[in-house]
Design a protein around this nucleic acid. Sequence first.
DNA 1: TAGATTGTTAATCGATTAACAATC
DNA 2: TAGATTGTTAATCGATTAACAATC
Lengths: 208, 208
Amino acid sequence: MHSPDIPDIVIHRLPLYLRTLTILEEQGQAITSSHELGAHLDISPAQIRKDLSYFGEFGKQGMGYEVGFLISQLKRILHLSHAWDVVLVGIGDLGRALASHSGLKRWHFRIVALFDKDPQVIGQSLGPLTVGDVADLHAVVSSRGIKLAIIAVPAEEAQGVADTLIEAGVRAILNYAPTPVNVPENVRLHSIDPVASLQSMAYYLNEE
Amino acid sequence: MHSPDIPDIVIHRLPLYLRTLTILEEQGQAITSSHELGAHLDISPAQIRKDLSYFGEFGKQGMGYEVGFLISQLKRILHLSHAWDVVLVGIGDLGRALASHSGLKRWHFRIVALFDKDPQVIGQSLGPLTVGDVADLHAVVSSRGIKLAIIAVPAEEAQGVADTLIEAGVRAILNYAPTPVNVPENVRLHSIDPVASLQSMAYYLNEE
DNA sequence: TAGATTGTTAATCGATTAACAATC
DNA sequence: TAGATTGTTAATCGATTAACAATC
């Protein structure tokens, strides 16, 4: 399918290349170079060329990269050629903000099911969707074959929700709960943790 | 002040240690070990000991680490002994969710000022705060000496807002706008980008 | 052709891990 | 004391960068 030996950090940079290329394309630019991409992203040209070389040859010597072609190749590599269904668990303030996040739709991540455990929240409508009872999470995820999930529940519930999702067939989780979540190694996990980010940034601030 | 040669990736792990230690303390545990911390976080014990050794000696051979002591030391190292004022720019759905984020208060990051450019939003109240006009951003940030900012504006406005913040004295920015933001090297920047995260996770999912 | 830029190799740089003496 | 665990060194591992032949 795909080489399992490509470093994860390389995979993480591909979406950045894709986004910059998309902006260039919207601006009507047909050709770019590793140097130009690197300048936008603060990444060295050599690294960009090396990253791309894991997947093939996409440029022409002396000339650079054709923007539209490289976009199509990156979408193919990242499996972004079709839309992905996503389940969202935890409909608090953050969950609601994510449910209406236009950037997800724009990039063909469709939130197709919402769940919460609070009886006050279950049954509420958000746009076209109705919040389901987390008790039904396993059944819905497995019957619909959903592979991607976003967790926005309190820390205490995150591990349990993750376990249910994985058992139901989810293969990748975006976790907003401020807690470590353990997953088997065949499941991808990204945690988004603004408090941890602020805490590490505080290190670099002088005390007053 | 502090050694500038400590790897950034080490600094990023310290908040994870701090959070796990805090959970252990809440559970009434007085002593822990690099092995136990590592098991919670999926980090090797050797790495935890090495990370801590950049800052001093905090454990006892044969015994481990005193939880409360290590917490206090990590807070000191990360400059978390006092509260930090934070300015939040961009009061959309995500901005509102962040404004009411209890985890920030819990960790003594106080959002003390809100800004937006939309006349419909300016003047609205969120809890104790009123949304200000982004035109006043520079004046408020510089007069209050705010060093930390969260950006939750649309992509097109992120760079301009960042430039204003930095000019007004902000030294670290948590960026939720889905766009690369360039900052001088004496300013810290963390970008939170759920779409990029989902895109890189999609790589690991088989197409169907 | 001359200039530019790719793809790739080898060198460098940096982070992680294994191992163990010190010692509680 | 015996067992356990730290702090640290050296070895290993992996990622980034520099350099350049190939060639558009």
